[in-house]
Design a protein around this nucleic acid. Structure first.
Length: 216
DNA sequence: CCTATGATGATCT
DNA sequence: GATCATCATAGGT
């Protein structure tokens, strides 16, 4: 496996090119108690201000500020009062596009991930879903804006930072599948911007968007 | 396997 | 006040 970090240039492309190209790559989380690594198996692309499904659709706010910045940084948001989700900002700077990391196969540090994911019935479920992935990797908003590439004066080097993406073994293109994004409704619902590795047991089940009615 | 629902709080209108 | 890029659990098939 190729353990060189991905470059800034890798992320400084259209999000629709970057998203499928992340499948099979290695995400590294260097936490205070050790290192967890996973192989990325499922992602979704969010195309900035032109995408009704994107947090950036209604312009720049305090929450989505990182998406408008340079590519190769983590955008972490908190949702449903309980969960965190991890995105990687893509280029060009200012487009506010990003890739949501939806699932992965934990390949190192499972002994650290298991106690964070007590409801997982097997290791295949440790990172089977975007909030599960963030939980397994101990990702929260303190990592929002962190550089996953390094190489800039402001950013920590990827060899030492809390998050990094290694080249790994890119998945063969004929194993990449695509379809509608999970949980996205409205005008962005039909875009086939979810990408996953065909047949991989760690990919999360698809769930269509369901508007919730207020309880009586 | 499936569908329904409560949890819980930041964010935005 | 409504929504939300979700998950765990309960109960039916």
């Amino acid at each position: 496996m190729d353990r060189k970090p991905l470059t800034r240039e890798f992320f400084d492309r259209s999000v629709l090119d970057v998203a499928p190209d992340l499948l099979g790559r290695t995400l590294v989380r260097r936490g205070p108690d050790g290192v967890v690594e996973l192989r990325i198996t499922e992602v979704e692309a969010y195309a900035g201000e032109v995408d009704p499904g994107s947090h950036a659709f209604r312009g720049r706010t305090a929450r989505n500020d990182v998406m408008f910045g340079p590519p190769g940084h983590a955008y972490v948001y908190f949702t449903y009062g309980m969960w965190h989700c991890l995105n990687l900002v893509c280029g060009p700077e200012g487009r506010a596009s990003g890739v949501l990391l939806r699932a992965g196969e934990v390949r190192r540090g499972a002994e650290l991930a298991r106690p964070r994911r007590l409801s997982a019935r097997s290791d295949k479920e440790l990172a089977k879903g975007p909030a599960r992935l963030a939980t397994a990797l101990a990702v929260d908003r303190t990592l929002n804006g962190s550089d996953v590439v390094g190489g800039t004066a402001a950013g920590a080097p990827a060899a030492d930072g809390p998050l990094g993406v290694l080249r790994g073994t890119p998945v063969a293109p004929d194993l990449v599948r695509s379809g509608p994004r999970t949980g996205v409704g409205g005008d962005g619902a039909h875009q086939p911007w979810r990408f996953w590795i065909d047949g991989d047991p760690t990919v999360s089940p698809y769930r269509a968007h369901v508007p919730r009615r207020r309880r009586s």
